[in-house]
Simulated assay, not measured.
Amino acid sequence: MANKLRRSRDNRWIAGVCGGIAEYFGLSPKIVRIICALLIMVYGSGLMLYIILAIFIPKEAAR
């Protein structure tokens, strides 16, 4: 079964977007959160991107 992009239920701080992206690509959630924070601080559009992803990426199914 192919790996699908979902918002994480386990690796979440706000909406689970960074945790879900990290699980999808096999990265550490800390690295993805740092990249997200840098995008928010440097460009400001990172926050808008995070909100859009939180709306459109479905939640991970309950276990």
Rank of each mutant, 00 (worst) to 15 (best):
A37W: 09
G44N: 01
A2V: 06
A2C: 02
A62M: 05
R33I: 02
W13T: 12
Y43Q: 11
A22S: 15
N3E: 08
K30W: 14
I51F: 05
K59E: 13
Y50E: 09
L38Y: 09
I55H: 14
E23M: 06
N3L: 15
I51N: 08
N3F: 08
I40N: 09
C36N: 08
E23I: 09
G20Q: 01
I35C: 11
S45P: 00
E60W: 00
R33Y: 07
M48E: 05
I21W: 01
A54N: 13
N11V: 02
L5N: 01
I57H: 01
I51C: 13
I21S: 05
S8L: 13
G19Y: 00
V17G: 02
A2G: 06
K59R: 10
I21H: 01
A37D: 14
G46T: 01
Y43V: 14
K30G: 13
C36Q: 09
I51V: 15
E60K: 07
N11G: 04
R9S: 07
R6I: 15
G44R: 05
Y50S: 12
L38W: 06
Y24H: 15
R9E: 05
M1F: 07
L38S: 07
F25C: 13
P58N: 03
G16C: 03
I35L: 12
K30A: 11
F56D: 06
G44T: 10
I14L: 08
E60L: 02
G20P: 01
R9A: 06
Y24T: 07
I21N: 00
E60Y: 05
P29Y: 00
I21M: 14
I35T: 06
N11S: 14
L49A: 14
G44W: 08
R6A: 05
W13A: 06
A54V: 04
N3T: 14
C36V: 10
P29N: 03
Y43E: 15
R7V: 04
G46L: 03
C36A: 13
W13E: 08
A22D: 12
P29R: 03
G16D: 03
G19S: 09
A22V: 12
Y50D: 14
L53T: 06
N3P: 04
